[in-house]
Nucleic acid binder design. Structure first.
Lengths: 203, 203
DNA sequence: ATATTTGTCAACCAAACGGTTAAACCAAAT
DNA sequence: ATTTGGTTTAACCGTTTGGTTGACAAATAT
């Protein structure tokens, strides 16, 4: 071992690759731009990650690993559905503000290559809906919730939270607001969406 | 070999370009693939549309022109909010089944180039939310609806309807269902989503 | 019939792309 | 002091890309 494990370059590359891939997607990203942003020679990209595909997969898995815990919070936690809805909508907005390109990046790239998710599904920590479904059935039996399928409720929660960020240019144009007003509208949604869902499902 | 009155070529090109662009996006699309699919020489693409960018814009505007009337139905119609929600959720699913790649195509490409929507905003027929907002205020005053901002309600309606199609690979993986089950779930949503929204907003 | 315009194609082109190579570099081990 | 082996670089390579050219055929105008 000649040098003291110099993982710095590898990290610079991954950070630069994150930015470029998440902003431009696999097809739009250029290896040269990643190298420039990481301030290293283009050959280093291949030295550390062999190919564009493998570098991309490193970035993608990294991004997905950030998103998964957010979802597991609502799927595997032991609190009530109502509590889950409140905490999830609250947390998710803060999360997206930190990683603005992340949700649309994941969705866009999975649309480009839907088979890719199979590689992720096997890994532990991949969100699983079974516990959530049982909980919904139970709370309906207990007369807490109106009848609804767990799958549909989960899709609705995801949709109301994720969609405005994924489709933000469209939403801004339709609602006819600028970036500042949009940001405020999203902050308002922290309580707005939770109330909306709870009104919809509570008896 | 030109046959009798051949404006047909231009249409073949546009149809092929629609398929390729909507499936692979601007960056992933290849002019050669479009030419092959249209069964014409690659030079014809430039003869009729000058550049990849202009061909793409033709496809994009065409796609947007299909989506806009769907949204105007909920924004400018004279029926009640409840009726609008029911008819929109009902119609939208049928629409997406006919044009599966369309919503994610529009969203993806606007994320890639958000400025592009400014070109569309000027055109007449571009969805405008003002009438809808006034209607929401009115129905709240009349005691029909619970208090909610028109913008938020509109975003929620869009989200619940559009999101599952835009994020279909993700949804399929999380809910752990195959294509057939997903299709069924989407059909169920025709009534499911309408009920969900109405429960959430009706007094 | 002849000339002009429009439509079509095969061949070609320069630039950009992802990836490779071979040599230099440098800190630790001998 | 020399060897060693991971690290870095400039130059290079084959392929693909969007786009162009020039010749030519078909349709239309004269």
């Amino acid at each position: 071992m000649p040098k003291i494990k110099d993982t710095d370059t590898e990290n610079q590359i991954l950070n630069a690759a994150k930015k470029v891939f998440q902003e431009k997607g696999m097809d739009g990203a250029r290896m040269q731009e990643i190298a420039d942003k990481a301030k290293i020679n283009k050959s280093m990209l291949h030295y550390y990650y062999r190919s564009k595909q493998l570098l991309f997969e490193a970035v993608f898995k990294n991004a997905f690993a950030l998103l998964a815990p957010q979802l597991n919070a609502i799927l595997n936690d032991d609190s009530s559905i109502e509590e889950k809805v409140i905490s999830f909508t609250n947390n998710y907005i803060s999360f997206v503000v930190k990683h603005p390109y992340l949700p649309s990046f994941i969705i866009q790239e999975l649309n480009r290559n839907p088979k890719f998710i199979l590689k992720l599904k096997d890994q532990k920590g991949f969100p699983n809906i079974e516990k959530f479904k049982k909980q919904v059935v139970l709370e309906i039996e207990q007369g807490i919730l109106k009848p609804i399928k767990g799958e549909q409720l989960f899709i609705n929660i995801l949709a109301l939270n994720i969609f405005p960020f994924v489709a933000s240019p469209l939403v801004k144009a339709f609602v006819n607001i600028n970036d500042t007003e949009f940001k405020q509208l999203m902050v308002d949604r922290k309580t707005e969406v939770a109330n909306f869902i709870i009104n919809a499902i509570k008896v």
